[in-house]
Design a protein around this nucleic acid. Sequence first.
RNA 1: GGAGACGUCGCAUAGUCCGGUCUAGUGCGCCACCCUGCUAAGGUGGUGACCCCGUAAGGGGUCCGAGGGUUCAAAUCCCUCCGUCUCCGCCA
Length: 423
Amino acid sequence: MIDIALLRDNPQVVRASQIARGEDPAIVDAVLAADTSRRSALGDFEAARAQQKSLGREVAQAKGEEREVLLARTKQLADQVKSFQAKAGAAGEELDSLLSQIQNIVEGAPPGGEDDFVVVRHVGTPRDFAAEGFEPRDHLALGEGLRAIDTARGAKVSGSRFYYLTGVGARLELALLNAAVDQAVAAGFVPVITPTLVKPEIMAGTGFLGRHADEIYHLGTDDLYLVGTSEVALAGYHSGEIVDLSEGPLRYAGWSACYRREAGSHGKDVRGIIRVHQFHKVEMFSYSRLEDADAEHQRLLAWEEDMLAKAELPYRVIDTAAGDLGSSAARKFDCEAWLPTQQRYLELTSTSNCTTYQARRLGVRERVAGGQTRPVATLNGTLATTRWIVAILENHQQADGSVRVPVGLRPYLGGLEVLEPVS
RNA sequence: GGAGACGUCGCAUAGUCCGGUCUAGUGCGCCACCCUGCUAAGGUGGUGACCCCGUAAGGGGUCCGAGGGUUCAAAUCCCUCCGUCUCCGCCA
């Protein structure tokens, strides 16, 4: 939810943001009109209600005939109040519905669509497998050789885009996630294991039930949603609360399974575990003051890069274009690791600054000097996911099909230095 | 799954049976000021959220777990739901 006051005072800012995202700017005028009619309806209701209350007090005092006369008047008024209230309610809903369609105001993101990202920097150098004298295997071939990844049985049991991680595969995932949690804790994050089923209002509050609602699993019997990231549960954690940010941002590191329907991605990344329905993720989540949000965003990005350094992966950082931002994000940076067998970069982390968009919907506020409250900013960023296994296997593979374990992960694998194929 | 109790403005609690004087009382906490050479104690006042009108001062409205209903009028009566607790059953 964007700030209606911003829209009233600076409608051109909102229009510009909509245009940058490739969305319809005309909705701004629809909101302004709905706002006007809601205010007028609310005024009618409140005036009538005030009259009803004061008459009610007179009724309580009055006796006999005087009371009868008053009762007749109040009965009439009651109908009027009811009808005004209904009108005001409807006008309010109309406004909310329009306002909630407006996505967060873009801040600093490059204009354009998915392909218009700006590369911020490259870190590390992709290996030259030709010079090393062998053809790199892809992550699934490597994973099968290591008896680490089993997509055939995943499909047998659960369908396409499901998999088993076995042996060193399972251990490697745990190693990654544990390394991520340890790093987060060292940086002051509170580690959290979150619910993965959430109520509709929480899912809607984080902005995931808009355009891409068909990406999300829904349990109809219980009207609960399976989260696609622990961001959802962590954003909901302080919903409806007034939080204290006087000591700096509140930082949580969520550990959870993540579920995605991957509707509309048929035929894309079908091999292996690049794009799957279920995976694990450690996610950083910060509640910060709005004026600290940019700095916090940069910190989240830096922590992501620390993890990538532990995994010893070559990657680039991109500044996502406005048209490719999620509805909640004002700005987003992705870190993409080099994938040798596909000669392309693969997203491993994503950090978004959602400014006050989610907090406004979820009612997360802070108290400021003077006793006033205002919405906080929320930010999130990836520390590790199952997908990282793809990049680690491919980038650290050796000619014999074994895989060198990055030094930073060895403590989490009992000191193991090389993953050896099972013959 | 069954039975029962409970949910009030930071915390604790009154009010609910019997609807209007609740414009929600009180204690604690907190804030400001006063007093006291410091501290403690004491005194006075204040003390929530959200929305609308207004430059402001100020005025008005909504909120007693949530949502409906009855009524001229609901914290109070009725219904549904949610949550917490206790007991029983069942399952890990």
